[in-house]
């Protein structure tokens, strides 16, 4: 294994770790967003405060790790991506900023009105950030970042692969977060909450699965290299991710929440790995 492969492997690990750990963190915000009115949503929001309070901003370290490894290991490809995809990257950055700040603000807010304002900002930006990061991944995977940089600032991420990439990122992370929150709720002995979160997670899981399958058609047309890879070299990972996703749904349906967490992580890790594997192939 030469140094370049080692750095690529480290980068790859970082992306998977951020997708799994940061993704679960971020998408708690999705359930915050759909939790309902102030009173109805209070148990979910309190649970979210408890679940992500201790890990908090720590998972950003994976993002910083990815950025640093990327610019250290592959400075030119980093500069190329930064000069092309700066719009979605900036929007993701805005999301990270608003989310981190408003989560802390909400925790110590004095009144309900304040908490609702900060909470709304927190939840919305939590959903938008994975979406924009997903469009970035889509832009790279569909070969829209020229090696010299300076690609089209709009079409590089406003295209079928990117948009589906964004939706899939939101969906898979929300499914992951939902599984974790359900397990947390059960462990905390909140029966009603467990039931509600289980139902929502199942819906999210089914919808995400449907989106992934729908996405296959436009992606085949829009990014042939990506789809070739996904059906070729990376096919085993795609199968693993589908099986793990189905297993998670089954475990959720059968109230085996602690186990469901593992299969959910496996599903997301496999999706990201398949994608990454393919991206490496394109860059080679």
């Amino acid at each position: 294994m030469n140094a370049e492969t080692a750095v690529a492997a480290a980068l790859f690990t970082g992306v998977v770790a951020y997708a799994v750990l940061g993704g679960a963190d971020f998408s708690s915000g999705f359930f915050d967003l759909i939790a309902g009115g102030t009173r109805r949503g209070a148990p979910v929001r309190t649970l979210i405060d408890h679940s992500i309070g201790p890990v908090w901003e720590a998972n950003h370290v994976w993002l910083i790790f990815v950025l640093v490894t990327w610019w250290t290991g592959f400075p030119r490809s980093f500069a190329a991506a930064m000069t092309t995809l700066f719009v979605p990257l900036l929007l993701a950055l805005l999301g990270i900023v608003l989310r981190g700040a408003s989560f802390a603000f909400r925790k110590f807010a004095a009144t309900l009105a304040q908490a609702r304002l900060f909470g709304a900002v927190f939840a919305t930006s939590s959903v938008l950030t994975p979406f924009f990061l997903g469009t970035v991944a889509g832009g790279i995977a569909s070969g829209r970042v020229p090696a010299g940089g300076g690609g089209d600032p709009w079409s590089s991420w406003l295209n079928p692969t990117s948009l589906f990439g964004g939706l899939i990122a939101v969906g898979t992370c929300a499914f992951l977060a939902g599984t974790f929150l359900t397990a947390d709720a059960e462990r905390g002995g909140h029966e009603q909450l467990t039931v509600a979160l289980r139902r929502r997670s199942l819906v999210v899981g089914v919808v995400t699965g449907a989106v992934v399958f729908t996405a296959l058609i436009p992606i085949t047309r829009d990014a042939p290299t990506l789809s070739d890879g996904l059906t070729g070299r990376a096919a085993p990972l795609v199968v693993v991710s589908a099986l793990a996703g189905l297993a998670t749904l089954a475990l959720l349906a059968r109230h085996r929440y602690s186990f469901a967490r593992f299969t959910a992580v496996a599903a997301v890790a496999a999706v990201v790995s398949a994608h990454e594997e393919q991206r490496n192939e394109i860059h080679r």
Partner: peptide
């Protein structure tokens, strides 16, 4: 929290 995000 806000220092972490402005550092990011």
């Amino acid at each position: 929290a806000i220092g972490a995000v402005s550092g990011t």
